[in-house]
Computed example of a mutant assay.
Amino acid sequence: MRVVMFGYQTWGHRTLQALLDSEHDVVLVVTHPRSEHAYEKIWSDSVADLADDHGVPVLIRNRPDDEELFTRLKEAEPDIIVANNWRTWIPPRIFNLPRHGTLNVHDSLLPKYAGFSPLIWALINGEPEVGVTAHLMNDELDAGDIVVQRAVPVGPTDTATDLFHKTVDLIAPVTVGALGRIAAGETDFTRQDRSQASFFHKRSAEDIRIDWNWPAEDLQRLVRAQSAPYPAAFTFHRGKRLEVLAAVVSEGRYGGTPGRVFYREGEGVVIVAGADARTGRNHGLAITRVRTEDGEEMPATDYFTTMGGYLTSRPPSR
């Protein structure tokens, strides 16, 4: 089939590479300009460079809504458009242009975790598995019929970086497998159960601020989700920003006020956590490694030389 590819960053790069390695003919690539957004500088393999290396024409767009682009798409005469990590709305006149429509490849197990940063949100929420879905695009975002979907389990110590590497390897088989079904004339695909759908926004600095009212189990997953190269989860100690690089759920149960620097346990320092910490029924978050405001990394036991005081979500007002 003749394929036009819309994509960006490493997800789009892997998709384009899979298409170039397949029996299909990539006739045009559309990608975004480079971005300075913190999350878009991560996993930023260039789709444009890969297309150029293989002699495929490239168009750079923030939004696919201009007449020149539409004309170029019609001239390319694609049988299908394949999209992965395209960051803005694709209008119906484009996604319905090819005879087979548009196949979108998304790094979640749709209908859950449509939208942005699905791996990070899924890890924070304690999902047992994550994956990649190829679905046909329709008028509703990430809502079309599923052609191929594959899942991988989330391990007890997996970080978002681990899950990225697990799922990015699924892109090629999911994409090529879906195109194979479509090229073979199959049309009996899986309708999404929209009662199970969820949609998530882009992550920002506010989303990595530690709230000590969260249960320790949730905070430990937040720390794992914000693993390098993602921005680390952070809190404030004595008015200065402190990044939490590694932590575990404490073995013991600790009562008191959320955020209290309380007790050395094993290789960590336990912080009281949970909105109902006063009951004494909660585990705490045992921080094991931190990064200070001036960029110094160290074991938490070296940083917290004395117990007492509080970690807070925001610096104290002056």
Rank of each mutant, 00 (worst) to 15 (best):
R93L: 12
R93N: 15
R93G: 12
R93F: 11
R93Q: 15
R93D: 14
R93T: 14
I94T: 00
I94A: 00
I94M: 05
I94D: 01
F95A: 05
F95R: 07
F95D: 10
N96V: 07
N96P: 05
N96C: 12
N96A: 14
N96D: 15
L97K: 10
L97D: 04
L97M: 13
L97Q: 12
L97N: 04
P98V: 10
P98K: 12
P98F: 11
P98W: 14
P98N: 06
P98S: 09
P98C: 03
R99S: 01
R99L: 03
R99F: 01
R99K: 14
H100M: 06
H100A: 09
H100K: 12
G101M: 01
G101Y: 00
G101S: 04
G101T: 00
T102G: 08
T102H: 00
T102Y: 01
T102I: 03
L103V: 09
L103M: 11
L103E: 05
L103I: 08
L103W: 07
L103C: 03
N104G: 06
N104C: 09
N104Q: 04
V105W: 10
V105Y: 03
V105F: 06
V105E: 07
V105P: 00
H106G: 08
H106T: 10
H106M: 09
D107Q: 15
D107V: 13
S108E: 02
S108Q: 05
S108D: 07
S108R: 01
L109R: 08
L109S: 03
L109N: 03
L109K: 02
L109E: 05
L110E: 02
L110W: 06
L110V: 01
L110D: 00
P111W: 09
P111T: 02
P111R: 07
P111C: 02
P111Q: 07
K112N: 08
K112P: 04
K112V: 08
K112L: 07
K112T: 13
Y113N: 03
Y113F: 13
Y113C: 01
A114C: 08
A114L: 02
A114V: 03
A114G: 15
A114R: 15
A114Q: 11
G115M: 00
G115V: 06
G115Q: 04
G115R: 01
G115Y: 00
G115N: 03
G115H: 01
F116V: 12
F116R: 13
F116N: 13
F116D: 13
F116K: 13
S117H: 13
S117F: 10
S117R: 06
S117V: 03
S117E: 11
P118K: 13
P118H: 10
L119S: 11
L119P: 07
L119H: 05
I120Q: 14
I120G: 06
I120W: 09
I120F: 07
I120P: 04
W121G: 07
W121V: 01
W121Y: 15
W121Q: 08
A122E: 12
A122H: 11
A122N: 12
L123P: 10
L123W: 05
L123I: 04
L123Y: 08
L123T: 10
L123G: 13
L123C: 13
I124E: 14
I124N: 10
I124V: 11
N125Q: 14
N125I: 06
N125K: 12
N125D: 08
N125S: 05
N125V: 04
